Computed example of a mutant assay.
Amino acid sequence: MAADVTLLTTKAECDQALDSLTKEKATYAYRDYTQTYADGRATERATTVAAQLAKATDDVAHYTTEAARTGLTPVELRAAKRALIAATSRRDNLTLSSETTSGPTAYLADVDADQVDAQIATLD
């Protein structure tokens, strides 16, 4: 529903309303830009974390095999076990980092984005 412009009775009122609407639109346009930017950065980060997670998973498999190899000296076995512990820790941390936002946080972000989109459309 369009706003009732008959409420504005003078040119000064029209200018004041237009100035306010222009500022408000700039604010919402900025919010829209930052949301889009944040979405792009999140996508880039997810891609990077996925690659790092794949590498860490491969490392866990490699060091698991290495630690199970027969004929290792006690020093080599300890080094393989340490490497396995480090790789497992890295993989587990990356797994936590790669979990997507869900539930109320994701829902509220969608609501906020919809509100910004609707406000920009109204101000246009």
Rank of each mutant, 00 (worst) to 15 (best):
V49A: 08
A12F: 11
L53T: 02
V111P: 00
D32K: 15
L72C: 02
G103V: 09
L7C: 05
G40M: 08
S20Y: 08
T57R: 10
A68F: 05
A109W: 00
L94Y: 00
M1I: 09
T22H: 05
T22E: 10
E99P: 01
Y33T: 07
Q35H: 12
R69C: 02
T57Y: 06
T34A: 05
D58Q: 15
A68R: 10
D19P: 00
Y33M: 10
Y107V: 13
D4E: 04
T34V: 12
D15K: 10
T9E: 01
D15A: 11
Q115G: 03
A79H: 11
Y33K: 09
Q35W: 04
V75A: 15
V49W: 07
D15C: 04
L7Q: 14
A80K: 04
A83R: 14
K81I: 05
D110M: 11
P74A: 11
T6D: 01
A51D: 13
M1S: 10
A80S: 07
T22K: 09
K55N: 12
L18I: 11
V5L: 15
T6S: 12
A50M: 09
L94G: 00
L77W: 02
A2W: 12
V116R: 03
D59K: 09
D32I: 03
V60F: 06
T34D: 05
R90F: 05
A29N: 08
G71S: 06
A38D: 07
V75R: 12
Y37W: 08
Q119G: 00
Q115W: 14
E76W: 07
R45G: 01
R31H: 10
T36M: 05
D117W: 09
T10E: 00
G71T: 09
V60Q: 04
A79D: 09
L96V: 13
D19H: 06
T105L: 14
E99A: 14
D110H: 03
G103L: 06
A29D: 15
E24D: 11
A38V: 03
V49E: 03
V116Q: 02
A87S: 13
A87P: 02
N93Y: 06
T57L: 05
D32A: 15
T64Y: 06
T43F: 07
K25N: 02
T57C: 05
T70N: 14
P104N: 13
Y33V: 01
Q35S: 11
T6Y: 01
D114H: 10
A86G: 02
T47W: 01
T70R: 14
A12R: 09
K25H: 05
L18W: 08
Q119Y: 06
G40I: 10
D112H: 08
A113M: 04
T73C: 03
D124G: 14
T73H: 06
A2T: 13
K25D: 00
